[in-house]
Nucleic acid binder design. Structure first.
Length: 592
DNA sequence: GCCGTTTTCGGCCCGACTGTTTTCAGTCG
């Protein structure tokens, strides 16, 4: 059973307990444990075998025993009973907007509705309005909700789609309202935390005239529907189904509001509990004294800046990317937060393509694009031959490519530019673990990236062994997009990430954070684990065009979510230091 | 059911918006 499967079962238990109206703290306990296991870098089976289930945050004696049973026997009697008691269809009904456990339960018990389809039919037939608490409006809302659900196969949107949309909305809002109406505006929520997928977009702003801002927001050309609109908060649905919330606050509330709307929910719960211990109740406006601390009950504190709120509670300001309740509050308390890597720290890249394989720009064009972005180096790493649809490089073509790269580098030198192209390859890790280029060819290259693009559905043992074989090759410097996932369209391969990372640490093979927003591979959790195990990281755009270089921030922010500092990332070092950090320490044949 | 810088027992975050409610419960983030 995988981490995801265990997490799903626990979440299913939580959902069923909700419908059965169980103790709400018990429900939260299952939800927390599920979330915690979903975010676990290590394989739950290995954690169980090591007897360390209790070390997982949110897992106590009861849930640990249940997990152990699940892993040993494939099921757990107590959970089976709950699953028998509440049908899956009723749980799925809760995915419909505005349909929570209370409503789902009543519809199920009083009308026998036990699936989304049955719910849709009943709402369409107008048979819900007879139920106390439901009316014609409720039916309408349910039908609309189900329609929305069907339109969006995945309920979360990739950051690569959402971020440009959100930035366009913010820019447009500032254009259409009279100058000075918007004093401050910022994207908050999971987008500010740079989560790989987001549920909805949250925008926060300060204005003396909220009504004007709300009106402008509701009438944006991208808006397909207004889901709700009050004095300080409006929710709209865009044409692609994405929900965007706008909240307007007073200037003096900005600090607390931005903190509140950035989340995560789990981080905020910790923050509010911490505030309570100090005698303050925290909400999106600020702090109110409870009377149990030093200040008299009802006394209020407001914060124009987020950092002031954190400081008042005795915490260092926590970068948004860390706000997932993964130890950041304890670290902020001890002033021990990491100095996170920034986009400006990146001095070059080690993985990208040209027209020698499936890129759209020439060696010179990519070199110029990288150089004018301020890079000091860029590794030409075209696919090796034999990769189906893609034209690739072999020993002969690499020799010809080397001449082109040398000519470009000589030109840079003549111009006095401190920039150099390196020559490498993204060599295919073939199905049996051998590489797409022979060792004697790899030995001539500066930086070798090895990746998997084929036979990705091999079983765990096979694909792990295949990957390890590549990692132990002395010429492989970097493992490219290690899990092969494409967010929203292809699940990760079955590889045993823990074992592969251990091997990478042992052999000094760097692991990639591929910055392309559909990959973001490694993700935050694995990247953090990789550094814990002693791995070096490389952050690369894997650009196939000049424009492909713009995705770098997605990779850097994913690294930040993984608590990474510049020191762990190879391509933050000057070229000579970077080459010296590679596996063989010489930088290959091309290094001077 | 989990957890501990007042606790191994007694806590466990907080407010906006909606619909159908004549005072509030349910949902959401």
């Amino acid at each position: 059973m995988t981490n995801r499967e265990v997490a799903e079962i626990l979440a299913g238990v939580g959902a069923r307990l909700q419908i059965l109206d169980a103790n709400r703290f018990r429900i939260i306990a299952f939800q927390n444990a599920a979330e915690s296991i979903r975010n676990l870098a290590q394989d739950i089976n290995q954690v169980d075998v090591a007897g360390k289930l209790l070390e997982i945050p949110g897992v106590g004696k009861g849930i640990a025993d249940a997990i152990h049973e699940l892993l040993s026997h494939g099921h757990y009697t107590e959970f089976d009973a709950l699953y028998d008691q509440v049908p899956e269809g009723v749980v799925q009904m809760m995915a419909v907007p505005d349909m929570g456990p209370k409503k789902a339960k009543r519809l199920w018990e009083e009308l026998g509705i036990d699936s989304v389809e049955a719910l849709q039919a009943a709402a369409a037939a107008g048979s819900l309005r007879d139920l106390k608490g439901f009316g014609a409006k409720s039916e309408e809302k349910i039908l609309k909700g189900i329609e929305l659900l069907a339109k969006r196969s995945d309920t979360r949107t990739s950051i690569g789609v959402a971020r440009p949309l959100a930035e366009a909305i913010v820019a447009r809002l500032q254009e259409v309202v009279p100058a000075g109406t918007i004093e401050r505006i910022e994207i908050a929520g999971s987008l500010r935390r740079w989560k790989e997928t987001i549920g909805d977009v949250d925008i926060l702003c300060v204005s003396h005239d909220p009504a004007t801002v709300m009106e402008a927001f509701r009438t944006l050309p991208q808006v397909a529907d207004v889901a709700g609109s009050g004095e300080t908060k409006t929710s709209v649905i865009l044409g692609n189904g994405l929900q965007v919330d706008l909240r307007v606050v007073e200037r003096k509330h900005w600090g607390a509001a931005l903190q509140y709307f950035t989340g995560s929910k789990e981080h905020n719960v910790e923050m509010r509990e911490l505030a309570l211990k100090q005698g303050w109740s925290l909400n999106e406006y600020g702090l109110t004294a409870t009377g149990s601390g030093g200040a008299p009950e009802g006394e209020q504190r407001f914060f124009e800046e987020e950092a002031d709120l954190y400081a008042f509670l005795g915490l260092a300001w926590v970068p948004p990317e860390l706000r997932e309740n993964r130890g950041e509050i304890q670290a902020a308390r001890k002033d021990a937060l990491p100095a996170l890597i920034t986009v400006a720290d990146i001095r070059g890249e080690l993985h990208g393509h040209t027209t020698w394989s499936d890129g759209t720009a020439s060696v010179q064009e990519m070199g110029e694009a990288a150089r004018t972005r301020g890079y000091a180096y860029w590794n030409v790493s075209d696919h090796s031959v034999g990769l189906g649809v893609v034209q690739g490089v072999d020993g002969e073509r690499l020799r010809r490519q080397r001449a082109e790269i040398d000519a470009y580098n000589r030109w840079c030198q003549e111009q006095g530019y401190a920039f150099r192209l390196l020559q490498g390859s993204e060599v295919e890790i073939l199905a049996d673990g051998t590489l797409g280029l022979p060792d004697e060819v790899l030995a001539t290259l500066d930086v070798v990236v090895a990746s998997i693009h084929s036979a990705q559905r091999q079983d765990r043992e096979t694909i792990t062994a295949r990957c390890l074989k590549a990692v132990y090759n002395p010429h492989v410097d970097i493992l490219g997009h290690p899990t092969g996932r494409l967010i929203g369209s292809r699940p990760p391969t079955e590889i045993d990430v823990e074992r592969v990372l251990q091997a990478c640490a042992e052999t000094r093979t760097a692991v990639e954070i591929n910055a392309s927003p559909e990959r973001l591979d490694l993700n935050d959790v694995y990247a953090r684990r990789a550094v814990e195990l002693g791995c070096q990281i490389a952050i690369n755009c894997d650009a196939h065009s000049v424009e492909g270089l713009v995705v770098l921030p997605y990779g850097v922010h994913m690294a930040r979510r993984g608590w990474l500092t510049a020191a762990s990332v190879l391509n933050t070092y000057p070229i000579d230091e970077m080459l010296a950090l590679l596996k063989d320490g010489s930088g290959g044949a091309g290094a001077q």
